[in-house]
Design a binder for these strands. Structure first.
Lengths: 223, 223
DNA sequence: GTGGCATTGAAAGGTTGTTGAAAGGTTGTG
DNA sequence: CACAACCTTTCAACAACCTTTCAATGCCAC
C-alpha cells in the first residue's frame, strides 16, 4: 500500500515516514506541492496525506486540482488550521478526512487504515481460470472481463466447477447444489446443464472434462 | 438518502433530525441499540450516525455486531468519549469517522457528505450517467442540468440506481427502500416503478437493464 | 370544505427467458 | 456384443418480468 505524504516540516515528515513504514505502508514524502504532483505522475499511490501549509502553494489548491483531474484516491488533510470553516472547506473540496495538529500518531494511523479499508475492500475476483473469472461477491462470472449473463442454474454449475477447478466434482454434488428443496435433480438434468455450460465457455478456452463414473472437471483447453 | 441516527438524547436527536432533514436527507431516529437493529431489518439505510452511550448496550458492541454481519454501510460515531483510545477503538472496530461532542453541526454535515461521496460516488459531488446527474449535496436529479421533477417514489428508485450505478440492485433492496413501515412492497409495484422511471430516463441516454432473478442495473445507453 | 390533479399500487393479461423431462444418439467398458 | 454412462436436441410447463388500466388516496389551490 503506497502512501504519498505531502509535508514540508522535515521533523514531522521523518516521524511519519518512520511510523507508517513500521506499520507496513510504503511511504514517499514530498516537501512541496510541485514535487508532489511530479511524484504522482511517476508513481501510483493509494492514499495521500496532505499538509495544507506548503511553501510553494496552498494545499487546498492542490486538492482542488487533483479532484478536478478526477484523481479519486482517498486524501486525508493534516494541518494546523483548526478553524471550523477550514475543516468544512477542506472536506467539501474533496478531502475524505481532516485532522488538526497536534494529533496522535495512532489516531492518524487508524484513520488511514479506515480509509483504505473503505476504499479498497473486496475488489478482487475470487478465481481466474484462463479467460474466465469468478466473482462470488457480485454473483457473476466474467469472460474476457465481460459478464457472461448466465442463468441462475448455469451460474451455479459453473461456480462449483470454478471453485474446484482442476478437481473432480461428482454428479451428486452438482445435483445437490441445483436442487431447490432437498429432492435432488435427475442425472439427466445435470447432463443438460453441463452441456449448456460447455457451449458457453468453449469460446473462452475452458473445457469441462468428463471422468466417466466419477464426475466432471474444469480445466483450460490447452492443458 | 436514508440516514439512521442512533442517539438517546432527545434534544440532540431532534436537532439533528431537523437539520439533516432540511438538507434533504431522510432521517430516522432510534433511541436504543435494540430498536436500531430492529429498524435496520425493516428498512434500508445508506449511513448510520451512532452515539456510543446508549441506554441498553454499548455502541461499540452494536458497531462490532454490524461489521461482523458484513453490514458495510458507512458509520460515523458521534460521542462524548474523546479519549484517544476511544477514538482509535471506534475506528479500528469499523467506524468510518469519529466526532466528539460538542461538535459543529456544519462539520458533521460536511463529514456525512464526504462519506456518502466516497462510498457511493467515487469521490465526486455528482454521479453522472449519460445526461443524468445526481447531486449528492442538494439531493437533486438533473437531466441536461434541469430538475427532472420526479415523484417521491420515482426519485427514490432512481437515486438508489444512480448511487449503485453499474452494480446490480436487487428487488428486495428497492422494496425495502420504498416501503415506509416494514411491510415491503409487492414485486409488481416495483416493476411498475421501474417501468415509469425507464420512460423518464430513456430520452437522456440512460438505461435500466434487467438481470433476471437478480435485479436491475443502471448504465448508459450505448454500453 | 371542495374540486382538480398528481401519486400510488393492486389487478390482469401479455411477453420472454428458464427449467428439466423425454427420447434417441454416442461413447466407453467388460 | 451388451450394457451403462453420457451427450444432444426438443419442447411444454413454468416463473420472472413487462405493460396498461384503474380505483383509491393524498395534496393543493380556491
Amino acid at each position: 500500500m503506497n502512501i504519498l505524504l505531502v509535508e514540508d516540516d522535515a521533523v514531522l515528515a521523518d516521524g511519519l515516514v518512520y511510523t507508517l513504514s513500521k506499520s507496513g505502508y510504503s511511504v514517499t514524502c514530498a516537501t512541496t506541492g510541485v514535487y508532489a504532483e511530479h511524484l504522482m505522475l511517476a508513481q501510483d499511490f493509494d492514499l495521500i496525506v496532505l499538509d495544507l501549509g506548503l511553501p510553494d502553494m496552498d494545499g487546498l489548491t492542490l486538492l482542488r486540482q487533483l479532484r478536478r483531474r478526477k484523481v479519486s484516491m482517498p486524501i486525508l488533510i493534516l494541518t494546523a488550521r483548526d478553524g471550523i470553516n477550514d475543516r468544512i472547506q477542506g472536506i467539501e473540496q474533496g478531502a475524505d478526512d481532516y485532522m488538526t495538529k497536534p494529533f496522535e500518531l495512532r489516531e492518524l494511523e487508524a484513520r488511514i487504515h479506515a480509509l483504505i479499508r473503505r476504499c479498497y475492500a473486496g475488489f478482487h475476483n475470487d478465481i481466474v481460470i484462463g479467460r474466465l473469472a469468478l466473482n462470488t461477491r457480485d454473483h457473476q462470472i466474467l469472460a474476457d472481463g465481460q459478464d457472461m449473463m448466465l442463468s441462475p442454474r448455469e451460474y451455479a454449475v459453473l461456480e462449483i466447477l470454478l471453485l474446484q477447478a482442476g478437481k473432480v466434482v461428482c454428479k451428486e454434488r452438482l445435483a445437490q447444489r441445483l436442487s431447490t428443496e432437498g429432492d435432488a435433480l435427475a442425472d439427466n438434468a445435470i447432463e443438460v446443464y453441463i452441456h449448456r455450460v460447455r457451449k458457453r465457455i468453449e469460446p473462452y478456452g475452458a473445457v469441462i472434462r468428463t471422468l466417466r463414473g466419477l464426475g466432471y472437471l474444469l480445466e483450460t483447453a490447452d492443458a
